[in-house]
Nucleic acid binder design. Structure first.
Lengths: 202, 202
DNA sequence: CACGGCAGACTAACCAGTCGGTATGTGGAA
DNA sequence: TTCCACATACCGACTGGTTAGTCTGCCGTG
C-alpha cells in the first residue's frame, strides 16, 4: 500500500524532491506553526504540487514526525558518543551538556518545532517520540548519577531535576537565541555547560 | 463598537459567564492546543452558545490574549514585591526564583498555553506580550546584576544568560511536572532556586 | 418598552487528502 | 534499432468536512 512512500526509515538515499519538501516544511512549520501551515503552502514554496508531496509522504503528520526522528536520532547518537568516551565524568558531562546546546542552535528550526508542536502528533506517534525522548533523558541522568556517586557532583538535588533543569535551558533556546546576537553557539554552549557544572559543585 | 466587550482591561467585575468562558477556554487550550480547539467546543463545554462568547469577547484570539495578560500581570506583581523587599540580594533572588516556579506550577495550564501558543497571536498582540515579558526579564536581570556588582554572585556568566537559564527551567515545567509526582511545587521550587544560587556562587 | 444578554442558524473561506490522468525512463523482445 | 510494457514521478481539479465569525431575533428585567 505504501508504494514508494518513505515511511520514516533510516538515513540513506532520499530523493531530492522529498528532501526539498521536508526542508521547506521544516522552515514553514518553524515560522508559522504546524496548524497554520497548509499543505498547499508547503508545495507552493517547494515548487511542486500536492501530488508530489503525497507521493513521498503518507500525510501532513508524517512530515512532522520526520523532523522529530531526525533530531532525536542525531542527538541520541551524539550523547552516546560523549557519554561513552574515556574521560573523567566531569568532562564528559560538560562536553555532552555543551554539545546538545550547539546542535540545538544549529538546528533551531527543528528544535522549535519539536518543543512547540509535539502535541500535534497522533497519540501513537506521540507515545513513540516520548519514549525516545525518555531514553535520551535517562542516559543523561545516568551520567549525572555517576558523578554524584563518585563524589565529584553534589547530591543536594535529585539527578532527575538536574537533567530537567539543564534541558529547560536547551528547550528555551529557540525562544531567545538569535544568530545575529553577540554570542556564537559555542560561546552560549560553554556558558550553559559552565552554569550546570557550577551548580553541581559539591 | 465594543459594546459590552471586555477588551483586556483590569481586574474587577467580570461577569460570571465571561469568567466561565475564559476558564473553559484556558483548560481546553492547554489540553489540545489553541488551533485544535474550536470555538464551538469552548461554548459547548461552558454550557452557552457562540452568541454569548462573541458578546463578551471580540475574537478567539482575544481569549488567548486574556490568558497571557492575566499571567503576566500576576507574575510581574510578585516579582516586583520580592525584588523591592528589604533583604540581602541573595535572599531576594532565591525567593523570587522560587516564587515564579511555585506560581507557574499552580497555573500550569496558563503556563503551557503561554509558552506553546504565543506564536498564534497576531503580530501586534505578540509584540505587546513580548514587551511585557521583556520588562519582567529586565527586572530579574537587574537583580542578578546587583548581586554581581556587590560581589555575592560570580560574574563568570553574563546576567542575561543566567536569567534565560533559569527561565528555561520554568518554561520547561509544563513539559515534565505532574501534580501526582513525588515533589510538591514548593519542593521543586526550592530545588530549582538552589541550583540557580549554587551556579552563581563565586 | 427599551435594552443588555444571549440563542442558534447561516455564510464564506479554507483545508487535508483523493484520484484519474500525463510524462518520463527503463528493460526486453522482435 | 525500434517498439512495446510497465513502473515511477508528478500534476491539479475536486470533495467532504470543518471553522471563525455574523446576524437576526427572542426574552426577561428594570
Amino acid at each position: 500500500m505504501a508504494g514508494t512512500r518513505d515511511g520514516g526509515n533510516g538515513s540513506g538515499g532520499t530523493k531530492p524532491v522529498a528532501r526539498r519538501l521536508l526542508a521547506t516544511a521544516t522552515r514553514l512549520f518553524a515560522e508559522q506553526g504546524y496548524d497554520r501551515t497548509s499543505v498547499q503552502e508547503i508545495v507552493d514554496a517547494a515548487g511542486v504540487t500536492k501530488g508530489a508531496l503525497y507521493h513521498y509522504f503518507g500525510s501532513k503528520e508524517d512530515l512532522l514526525q520526520e523532523v522529530y526522528s531526525r533530531v532525536l536520532r542525531l542527538q541520541q547518537e551524539r550523547l552516546d558518543a560523549f557519554a561513552d568516551a574515556d574521560a573523567p565524568v566531569e568532562q564528559r558531562v560538560r562536553e555532552a551538556a555543551a554539545d546538545v546546546v550547539v546542535t540545538t542552535i544549529e538546528n533551531l528550526d527543528d528544535a522549535s518545532i519539536f518543543f512547540r508542536s509535539m502535541h500535534h502528533l497522533s497519540p501513537e506517534k506521540n507515545k513513540q517520540v516520548r519514549a525516545e525522548r525518555r531514553r535520551y533523558h535517562e542516559r543523561f541522568r545516568a551520567l549525572i548519577e555517576e558523578g554524584q556517586r563518585s563524589g565529584v557532583f553534589s547530591t543536594a538535588t535529585p539527578a532527575d531535576l538536574v537533567v530537567d533543569y539543564h534541558f529547560g535551558s536547551v528547550h528555551h533556546l529557540s525562544t531567545w537565541y538569535r544568530p545575529e546576537g553577540p554570542l556564537s553557539p559555542q560561546q552560549v554552549a560553554d556558558h550553559l555547560a559552565d552554569l550546570l557544572l557550577r551548580a553541581l559543585r559539591p
